Simulated assay, not measured.
Amino acid sequence: MASKAEGRRARKNQFGVKGGVIPPSSQVIHFSPAQWEEFIEAACRLRPLEGLVRYAFVKRLGGAGDGGRDVEARLDTTLTQDRWDLYQAKHYATGLTPTNAFPELAKFFQQLEAKTYPRPRYYLFCAPKGVGNDLGNMINNPSEFKRRFLSDWRQGKTGFKGRSAELTAPLAKLINEFDFAKIRECQTRDLIEWHALDRSAHHELFGMEAQRQNDPDAPASLSPDEHVYVEQLLKAYGEQCGQLLTSDDVMAPGRYQEHFQDQRTLFYCAEGLKIFSRDLYGEEEFDDLLAMVRKGIRPLVNSPSLRTGLERLDKGTSEVSKLRVDDSVLASKLRPGDLPGTCHHLVNRGQLSWVK
Score class of each variant (00 low, 15 high):
residue 114 A to G: 11
residue 261 Q to K: 06
residue 251 M to Q: 10
residue 5 A to W: 04
residue 250 V to Y: 03
residue 174 L to P: 08
residue 350 G to H: 05
residue 134 D to P: 03
residue 107 K to M: 08
residue 324 R to L: 13
residue 255 R to F: 13
residue 71 V to F: 11
residue 323 L to H: 14
residue 201 A to M: 06
residue 70 D to R: 00
residue 158 T to K: 04
residue 110 Q to P: 07
residue 96 L to Q: 05
residue 74 R to S: 05
residue 97 T to M: 11
residue 10 A to K: 15
residue 100 N to I: 08
residue 236 A to M: 04
residue 241 C to H: 07
residue 34 A to R: 12
residue 182 K to V: 06
residue 19 G to S: 10
residue 182 K to E: 08
residue 79 L to Y: 15
residue 53 V to Y: 06
residue 222 L to W: 12
residue 306 L to H: 10
residue 99 T to M: 10
residue 177 E to M: 07
residue 51 G to H: 02
residue 15 F to H: 12
residue 19 G to T: 14
residue 209 E to G: 07
residue 101 A to W: 01
residue 85 D to E: 11
residue 139 I to G: 03
residue 83 R to E: 08
residue 229 Y to H: 03
residue 166 E to N: 10
residue 231 E to F: 02
residue 128 P to I: 04
residue 327 D to C: 06
residue 77 T to D: 15
residue 34 A to N: 07
residue 226 E to G: 14
residue 70 D to I: 06
residue 122 Y to H: 14
residue 206 F to E: 12
residue 196 A to Y: 15
residue 184 R to M: 15
residue 230 V to W: 11
residue 82 D to M: 06
residue 265 T to Y: 11
residue 203 H to T: 01
residue 258 E to K: 01
residue 139 I to Y: 02
residue 307 R to Q: 15
residue 123 Y to F: 15
residue 291 A to I: 00
residue 189 R to V: 07
residue 174 L to D: 06
residue 194 W to C: 06
residue 48 P to H: 03
residue 113 E to C: 12
residue 175 I to A: 10
residue 223 S to N: 15
residue 116 T to L: 09
